[in-house]
Write a protein that binds this DNA or RNA. Structure first.
Lengths: 240, 240
DNA sequence: AAAACAAAACTGGTATGACCACTTGACCAC
DNA sequence: GTGGTCAAGTGGTCATACCAGTTTTGTTTT
């Protein structure tokens, strides 16, 4: 039997989630003042320090603005939040937001080739050797989920090779966003399993230090997945 | 006279900054356990709730992992942090990190044209009209800083038009990163002031709904700035 | 001597109540 | 209208105690 570890969520975590959902779902509109910390503590049946911890974390993500002496105000997260918020937007209330999912795929298609180009310029044969090791494992993989995990490993190496902190942090944020959804996505992308040739072409371009070819090869790696997912999202989006 | 608002930083903020700097500067290496909350409170001369608030915010950014009952561990921020950390990496200890700056420019050059293409597909004449209003103001602007602010406004509209949450959040993160450095950068980019024609061409492509042209036009908007800044960063990087 | 167990000594999580610092708005004097 | 004062409400900090979970230690058992 498949047991999963029990997760005891702290009171602070639960308050954090509640507040975040209320802001993101628009139940608390931008500019609106939040109830005072004392009031929140009373309503939620917890102590004020716990409320404060949750509130500080919410503020850290840019969703509210706490002002000493004044009320805490809700901000427009579309204006104030950074990419770290993405995971909480992509899957909301257990449901995947197809509009957000579409934008993730679009961004991936845009950023991926750029990463590949930089990696080709800077990675060299050492990077290519690491990539070869991953593609070798991919070639022997039949499980859809394992395949996706390996594909992520491949891109992780590529991002390292690009030697760009911004792309690294972007990758981390995007990865954090769709890693939870991977099991669900893997089945959609089962047809992709075993298609290792595009990755090998990309690796070859990296080894040769050929940035333009790497860019094109990366696009060929990403496009099939993107088309499949965009199609699925479009179908889901109309279904509701 | 140019007065600036006084900023009183809370104890919690100061602890947050100290811990963040220690992790980012590598004085606390990944895997290493942090001192206990009680110990930190004692050493820093503050109360434990304040330490906890700072610690929870640090954990929120992915820099440490707090475990109930166990020690709090430092994580490798290169692996765990998201794009929200960028502002704290770009300018560290009052100094601009040129390697990070380079990666920001590279990412901008990669993402910008993609945003322009999407905006051309989805924005339509309404977006173009808004863009025209900004370029009209730009044409009359001679101050270098004002020019940069308007350029940011232009891109803000473009990002709206792209109708992509991921690009919106990316833009917010990047903006938060280099907005503090804008005054310093503006003087470097003084030569760009008045060059409104590339923006007008981009606007025209958006109005026509011509994505490929918009993509190319965006590249032409971004390239001069990118070259200038990359050159300046390279010179700075070698100087040390 | 090795393994199993139990207790103690950590760790973080929560609660309480008090006080300080700041903002806001009402009211008052000029 | 201007400026000043004051009271009420807000967030910021402190101190202490206790609960909950983990890690270490020491003992017991095999």
């Amino acid at each position: 039997m498949a047991l999963r570890p029990v997760t005891r969520r702290s009171a602070s975590d639960q308050v954090f989630d509640q507040l975040l959902d209320e802001v993101v779902d628009g139940e608390l509109t931008a500019g609106e003042p939040l109830p005072s910390e004392r009031r929140l503590a009373e309503v939620l049946g917890i102590s004020r320090p716990v409320v404060r911890e949750a509130l500080q974390r919410i503020a850290q993500t840019g969703l509210v603005e706490v002002r000493h002496g004044g009320a805490t105000l809700v901000r427009d997260f579309r204006r104030a939040a950074g990419l770290d918020l993405l995971p909480r937007l992509l899957v909301r209330g257990g449901q995947l937001d197809t509009a957000i999912g579409r934008s993730v795929i679009e961004a991936r298609a845009e950023v991926g080739p750029g990463i590949a180009a930089l990696a080709a310029e800077r990675g060299g044969p050492a990077l290519a050797a690491s990539l070869d090791a991953v593609t070798a494992t991919m070639a022997e993989t039949t499980d859809a989920l394992d395949w996706q995990v390996l594909a992520l490993d491949y891109w992780d190496l590529l991002v390292d090779g690009a030697d760009s902190m911004v792309f690294r942090l972007m990758f981390n944020s995007l990865r954090a966003a769709y890693e939870p959804a991977l099991p669900a996505l893997a089945s959609l992308l089962a047809g992709e399993v075993g298609q290792v040739e595009p990755y090998r072409l990309l690796t070859a371009a990296v080894r040769a230090g050929d940035a333009p070819t790497a860019r094109a090869a990366a696009a060929r790696v990403l496009t099939p997945t993107a088309d499949t997912l965009l199609g699925a999202f479009a179908a889901l989006g109309e279904g509701r």
